[in-house]
């Protein structure tokens, strides 16, 4: 099997796909749904925010291994971040994942497991989907906000 594939499906990714962390519902809080209209993948991100700090994050939905692993890693990673820091992280992640292969990239720590998508341009949207839902959730209040991977077009269902 190719080196590229092992970069995409790293052990960490496969593990989070198999055993997604924080894969559950939450009563109340903020939430937003990321929906990729092209492939039908859906991720709903739930946040419990206290004094502008994310105290709990979880997700639900269905999607490919990359979507699931990205969402799972994300919910672990953003706990205890301020809303502003989380928003900045989304930007940084978006920039990093869409950097062409070979270009220097930020060290994303545990999230670095997602950078294999750079070798698979059509899969970048999968890794980014939960993060776009997060960005919407950061500013949403008890509503579902639809996002699509390219644009953050919003509509209330």
């Amino acid at each position: 099997m190719s080196v590229d594939l092992h970069a995409l499906y790293q052990e960490v990714v496969l593990d989070h796909n198999r055993h997604p962390r924080n894969f559950r519902a939450m009563q109340g809080g903020r939430k937003a749904e990321g929906f990729n209209r092209i492939c039908g993948d859906r991720v709903t991100v739930h946040l419990r925010v206290e004094a502008d700090v994310i105290r709990d994050a979880c997700f639900q939905g269905s999607g490919c291994a990359i979507v699931k692993a990205s969402a799972s890693l994300m919910t672990e990673h953003i706990r205890d971040l301020t809303l502003a820091d989380a928003a900045a992280l989304v930007e940084r992640l978006r920039r990093t994942l869409s950097a062409p292969p070979g270009a220097p990239i930020d060290d994303l720590g545990a999230l670095g497991a997602l950078t294999g998508v750079r070798l698979f341009p059509i899969r970048i949207k999968c890794a980014v989907l939960p993060w776009e839902a997060l960005l919407a959730a950061l500013s949403a209040r008890d509503e579902v906000v639809y996002t699509s991977p390219r644009s953050l077009d919003r509509r209330i269902p």
């Binding site: 099997m1 190719s2 590229d4 594939l5 995409l8 499906y9 198999r18 492939c39 039908g40 993948d41 999607g63 490919c64 291994a65 990359i66 698979f120 899969r123 999968c126």
Partner: peptide, 23 residues
Amino acid sequence: DGVHPHDIGTILDRAGVAIRVGH
């Protein structure tokens, strides 16, 4: 079982096998 079609599509593509995945 346990594998999303998009992941199948990506892995097959790297083996030179072109199939369609999706709806």
